[in-house]
Simulated scan of single mutants.
Amino acid sequence: MTDDIWPEDYWGFLGMPAQQKENPMYTGIEAIAAERKRQIEAEGWTPEHDDRHVSAELAQAAAAYALNCCDNSDGPELRFMGADIWPWSDFWKPSADPICDLTKAGALIAAEIDRLLRQRGGFT
Rank of each mutant, 00 (worst) to 15 (best):
L67A: 06
D4C: 00
H53F: 13
M16D: 07
S55Q: 10
Q19F: 00
T46V: 03
M81K: 12
A110Y: 02
K104N: 01
N72I: 05
T27I: 05
G82S: 11
T46K: 04
Q60A: 12
S89R: 03
I32N: 06
F80T: 12
I40R: 13
N72M: 05
L58M: 13
R118V: 02
D97G: 01
G12V: 02
I40Y: 03
P94K: 04
L14P: 06
L78D: 02
W45G: 00
L108R: 08
N72Q: 08
D101R: 04
A33H: 06
L117S: 14
F13K: 00
S55M: 02
K104A: 10
L67F: 11
Y26K: 11
E35I: 00
V54Q: 12
W11Q: 03
R36M: 06
S55K: 08
A83W: 09
R36L: 12
A31G: 07
D51G: 04
I29Y: 15
D4G: 05
R79K: 15
A42T: 10
R115M: 03
I109R: 03
T103D: 01
E41H: 04
V54T: 15
A96G: 10
D74V: 07
T46S: 13
G12F: 01
G44T: 11
I99T: 14
R38F: 01
S95F: 04
L102S: 10
E35D: 10
L117H: 11
D9K: 10
N68C: 02
P47S: 10
R118L: 05
A31P: 03
I113N: 15
E77W: 14
A111E: 03
C69A: 14
A61F: 04
G12R: 07
A18S: 15
D90G: 05
F123L: 12
C69R: 03
A33K: 13
G28V: 12
L67M: 11
A56Q: 06
R115Y: 02
L116W: 05
I85K: 03
D50R: 09
E30W: 03
S73V: 10
G121Y: 07
M1P: 06
D84I: 09
W11H: 07
K104C: 10
M1D: 08
T2E: 10
P24D: 01
D51I: 05
A62P: 01
E22G: 13
V54G: 02
F13D: 14
A33N: 12
T103I: 15
R120N: 12
N23E: 08
G75F: 14
T46D: 07
L116D: 11
T46E: 06
Q119D: 14
